[in-house]
């Protein structure tokens, strides 16, 4: 379970295929203990250090010491809540922690300095290389549920499919409904069901493009799970993240979900044909988006107005040109 948004991982289904492993379950954090002890010892040992810059060196040294410790008191407010203080003993780095078998018991500090998402990012880099090799512009579409991602895609494809090869990867927790809506336009689409998972990750896309041929020289649309929180942090290998904000939502969405609007290169303001019926301040929405992301581009779209997608199609065309993917 994702404790923030109530979703799980490891239940990904791509097309009808099952992938991944069983879901994780949450349990209470482990209890900490306190154990005072005093000991005296002398020993030789070898330290190996890896430094942040990747250098590594070992050096033997000898030292004798005595230490009694009951209160290396460490506070871990982030772990234990604001008003609980825990005291517990870590032993000493580089020293043995008990008598006797210190050769085996020696605690070592290993400097690592790796991004927690480095695995996802490595897979995303692989995806990006595959997209580049096939001259594909990959766009990652994200929004809250109901902002109009699939409807926008269907209308976009109706126009674009005559001009470019296109494929779509649809991410949803359940159902193949969206992929079916896309396929009805004649464009190939693959559904990725994340089960209880609340976002697509780079590995899901890597698996999906094993099954869905890349639209060489064209555009791959990836419709992420409807969620303004979790998808923001996961690079899929796309050229651009695109966030939709519909005018039936609040102008303050960018401030409420800043990570998403910070991650996106483009904000599509959707359903603008409804503006005459709403008290919605588009300028305020845009100002709020630029507060968290001064560089975000903004395009207004309507799937109902006659030329409601013209600016969006022009943006796609420009993105292909900038990436050197446009024909000619």
């Amino acid at each position: 379970m994702c404790t923030t948004c109530g979703c799980g991982v490891g239940e990904t289904r791509i097309g009808m295929a099952l992938a991944g492993k069983g879901p994780l379950e949450l349990v209470e954090p482990h209890a900490h203990h306190e154990h005072p002890h005093a000991h005296e010892h002398a020993h030789d040992h070898v330290h190996e250090h890896v430094h942040a810059d990747g250098t590594r060196h070992s050096h033997p040294h000898t030292h004798a010491h005595h230490h009694a410790h009951t209160s290396h008191a460490h506070h871990h407010d982030a772990l234990h809540g604001e008003d609980e203080a825990h005291e517990h003993d870590h032993g000493d780095l580089g020293f043995d922690v008990g008598g006797g078998t210190h050769q085996d018991q020696q605690a070592r500090l290993i400097a690592v300095e790796q991004d927690i998402l480095s695995r996802n990012d490595a897979v995303a880099t692989g995806n990006r290389q595959r997209f580049a090799a096939a001259r594909v512009l990959a766009l990652n579409l994200m929004s809250s549920p109901g902002a109009g991602k699939t409807t926008l895609l269907v209308r976009t494809l109706e126009t674009l499919k005559a001009q470019l090869p296109i494929a779509v990867i649809e991410g949803d927790q359940e159902t193949a409904a969206d992929a079916e809506r896309i396929r009805a336009t004649g464009v190939p689409a693959l559904q990725v069901n994340t089960g209880r998972g609340c976002h697509l990750d780079a590995g899901m896309i890597a698996q999906a493009i094993e099954r869905l041929p890349l639209p060489a020289g064209g555009v791959l649309f990836i419709e992420n799970v409807g969620n303004l929180v979790c998808p923001a942090g996961f690079d899929l290998g796309e050229a651009h993240k695109v966030v939709l904000a519909s005018v039936t939502e609040g102008e303050d969405k960018p401030l409420k979900y800043p990570h998403m609007f910070r991650a996106a290169d483009l904000m599509l303001v959707s359903k603008v044909d409804l503006l005459p019926y709403l008290d919605f301040d588009v300028d305020l929405l845009i100002a709020n988006a630029r507060k968290v992301n001064p560089g975000i581009a903004v395009v207004k779209v309507s799937t109902r107005a006659a030329d409601g997608l013209a600016d969006w199609l022009a943006w796609i065309s420009a993105a292909r040109t900038v990436k050197g993917l446009a024909a000619g």
């Binding site: 870590h90 780095l93 922690v97 085996d104 018991q105 020696q106 605690a107 070592r108 500090l109 290993i110 400097a111 690592v112 300095e113 790796q114 991004d115 927690i116 998402l117 960018p254 401030l255 800043p258 990570h259 910070r262 100002a287 709020n288 630029r290 507060k291 968290v292 001064p294 560089g295």
Partner: peptide, 29 residues
């Protein structure tokens, strides 16, 4: 995110620190 500049009150800010998620070190036996 979304706060104004605490110094001048301006809104044109680009994050340049405090957004990391890193494994820094391990203590192992």
């Amino acid at each position: 995110l979304g706060d104004d500049c605490p110094r001048c009150g301006g809104g044109k800010l680009v994050v340049n620190g405090g957004d990391e998620m890193r494994l820094k070190a391990l203590e192992v036996l």
